[in-house]
């Protein structure tokens, strides 16, 4: 401390200043180091190891495997019908789930943004699905689609949505809708919470000014609510796209990719390859492809968002 007070008057104090400068420059790294060490050991190391697997033949049950195979896995992926099918399913699963999660979540947020008696209780109830572990939701929904246990298939039949009161999870044409419905139910609260928070940050006076300016409720929604929500919408859509594309839990629990691979998405296909067939090399190669696809998606979204921001 004395070094700082009589700065520059004694030669000894310069040393103090130098070490102080060193400290202040490296201080952030000292504080960040535990997190960095943790991230490197649990994320970066496995990632790099996984990437080396993509060019090796690693099958757990084959003691003679482990050799270098070059790009053989990627060539196999290129010709793998199951992978193409899984890629198509991933697209379908992600877009449909996201679409309904977003629009239903937005509607819910708009409803919950109004004042009505009992709003707080309903708010907390609405957010419950988010708190249920995904595999429990998956099990529950699998039962709900089972005509032996649940009335749901009968109701769907009565409404004319199903031609027979059967289990849609065992119908290859319809099976994907099972996990999608469960995923929509599971994911609505996320959009409702984040959009509600964004809605509540809009100052009320802006709406009052707009109503005096002559804007109808619909015009207020378009010219005030949506622009205010836009940044939140952009970031949540991007995050959720990546999460949903990677989110195999519900599918594994409800259909395990079946029947006849009709509900296999890329991440569940990776799971099947790695932990059912124990072919870690091939699974790693698929994972690397998925990583590249999602990164390309994220980069393009960030790019679009930036150019939009620059425009406005």
């Amino acid at each position: 401390m004395t070094a700082a007070t009589d700065l520059g008057t004694h030669p000894a104090s310069r040393q103090g200043v130098a070490s102080r400068r060193f400290l202040s420059r490296f201080e952030p790294y000292f504080y960040a180091s535990p997190a960095i060490v943790l991230l490197v050991t649990v994320m970066m190391v496995p990632l790099v190891v996984g990437l080396t697997y993509t060019v090796r033949d690693i099958r757990i049950l084959n003691p003679f495997s482990g050799g270098y195979v070059g790009f053989a896995h990627f060539e196999a992926i290129w010709h793998d019908q199951n992978f193409h099918n899984a890629l198509y399913n991933t697209f379908w699963w992600t877009v449909t789930s996201l679409f309904f999660q977003f629009f239903l979540g937005l509607m819910l947020a708009l409803l919950l943004n109004r004042t009505f008696p009992g709003r707080r209780i309903i708010q907390s109830l609405v957010f419950l699905p988010w708190a249920v572990p995904a595999f429990l939701s998956g099990l529950n929904w699998a039962w709900m689609f089972n005509p032996v246990i649940s009335p749901l298939p009968q109701w769907l039949f009565a409404l004319g949505i199903l031609s027979e009161p059967t289990n849609i999870l065992s119908d290859p044409d319809l099976a994907m809708w099972g996990p999608i419905v469960a995923n929509i139910w599971f994911g609505i609260p996320f959009f409702a919470i984040t959009l509600l928070a964004a809605l509540q940050s809009i100052p009320g006076e802006i709406y009052e000014a707009a109503s005096i300016d002559g804007a109808s409720r619909r015009q207020q929604f378009v010219s005030i609510t949506l622009p205010f929500l836009a940044p939140t919408i952009a970031i949540t859509l991007m995050l959720r796209t990546i999460w949903i594309a990677n989110f195999a839990d519900l599918i594994i629990v409800m259909t395990n990719g079946g029947p006849a691979d009709s509900t296999q998405i890329v991440s569940s296909y990776i799971f099947t390859q790695a932990f059912r067939r124990l072919d870690f090399g091939y699974a790693s190669a698929i994972a690397a492809v998925l990583l590249v696809l999602l990164m390309a998606y994220a980069v393009s979204i960030i790019f679009i968002r930036r150019s939009l921001l620059r425009e406005t």
Binding site: P203, E205, I206, E208, A209, A210, S211, I212, D213, G214, A215, S216, S223, I224, P227, F228, T312
Partner: peptide, 20 residues
């Protein structure tokens, strides 16, 4: 009458400008 049909203008304390 709703505000928009009254043909009046208002200046708010916080100005309430549209930030976007």
């Amino acid at each position: 009458l709703p505000p928009r049909d009254r043909d009046i203008a208002m200046v708010f304390q916080s100005y309430a400008l549209y930030p976007h």
